[in-house]
């Protein structure tokens, strides 16, 4: 066992995911506590240019081979398991992303290490790793003490500033041999880009975003009228899109779009971490929700605890009347 801290470097199409830089910042703090090195660990092919962006790490460990590009869950898990087995870091950080969900639990199972998921933070107390998970849709924080000599921690996006982990420069790069694998049971076929929508919500200055509180598709005009009065567009959280009430191109959040409008009005959106990830960078956030404990109020600047059907119409009228 080492006292090192490893960060799994997620990348897609030659670009490192933003969450990696957040985790390098968190990883550096942890490595300072453990007294170990900060390792950036990546599987893929043609990774040399990416390694140059990982100057925040003390060492970059690359497992490269033709079968590792593009990403597939089984090949990457096997490669990363080989690296982690060889280096035996004290703590390994993965992002709570689609790929991180494959790899976090997959590596934890393959290596027999504990996994703590949906973490906002992790620290060492004495020799014990303490990790804080944000669960129940972001409504509660669970602080847990992790047993054992190794652990995997999956980090939520937005847990720490990415600037802390952004450093160019030459970390020592080490190549790790690709482990021999059997036939691949998961094969990459193609990448599908999103269909162009009627509007590009990432370019809108004002978004009125609606969630489960809408209750029915028939209620959409209440939200559309406020958006129109504000000169903006309607966007939505995941459940509205899954119901088919608005197209996928309007979805804000983890698997949808990341938006940074001047004004983001969140109505009937509780604010699960997956949604907050996509809109916390908005300049001004106003939230309307019936639940005073809704996590959306932890990121909003102004909040109204109330029913959107009571609150929106008078606001829309007021704006229209003064235009």
């Amino acid at each position: 066992m080492s006292q090192d801290v490893a960060v799994v470097i997620e990348h897609l199409g030659g670009k490192i995911a933003d969450i990696v830089f957040e985790m390098l910042g968190t990883g550096r703090e942890l490595a300072t506590s453990t007294g170990g090195k900060l390792l950036a660990v990546a599987a893929g092919q043609g990774l040399a240019p990416l390694a140059k962006e990982l100057g925040a790490a003390d060492a970059v460990l690359l497992c490269q081979g033709a079968g590792l590009e593009p990403y597939t869950p089984d090949a990457h898990q096997q490669a990363l398991a080989a690296v982690l087995t060889a280096r035996a870091p004290r703590i390994t950080l993965v992002g709570n992303t689609s790929i991180g969900m494959d790899l976090g639990a997959g590596l934890a199972a393959a290596l027999g290490w504990p996994l703590v998921a949906y973490c906002r933070g992790a620290r060492l107390e004495g020799g014990t790793l303490v990790a804080t998970s944000q669960i129940y849709g972001g409504k509660l924080l669970a602080e847990a003490a992790v047993a054992g000599e190794h652990a995997i921690v999956s980090m939520l996006a937005g847990s720490s500033p990415a600037e802390a982990g952004r450093a160019a420069g030459a970390s020592a790069v080490e190549e790790i041999a690709v482990p021999a694998g059997g036939p691949r049971r998961v094969r990459f076929r193609r990448l599908i880009q999103p269909a162009a929508g009627d509007v590009d919500i990432t370019r809108e200055g004002v978004l009125v975003s609606v969630g489960r509180g809408l209750q029915s598709k028939d209620n959409l005009p209440v939200v559309e009228e406020l958006a129109r009065a504000l000169g903006g567009t309607v966007s939505a959280s995941r459940p509205i899109v899954d119901q088919g009430w608005l197209p996928k191109t309007r979805q804000v959040g983890k698997s949808g779009m990341t938006v940074k409008p001047k004004l983001y009005v969140a109505v009937g959106i509780s604010g699960a971490p997956e949604h907050l990830e996509g809109m916390r960078g908005a300049e001004l956030i106003v939230a309307v929700n019936t639940d005073a404990n809704a996590p959306i109020f932890t990121v909003a600047h102004y909040g109204v605890v109330g029913d959107l059907f009571d609150v929106l119409p008078p606001l829309t009228e007021k704006i229209k009347a003064s235009a």
């Binding site: 995911a17 992303t97 998961v186 990459f188 076929r189 779009m257 990341t258």
Partner: peptide, 12 residues
């Protein structure tokens, strides 16, 4: 599903 509405298609 990935961020930004991008998807990867796998044969499993």
């Amino acid at each position: 599903e990935y961020a930004g509405g991008v998807m990867a298609e796998f044969e499993v």
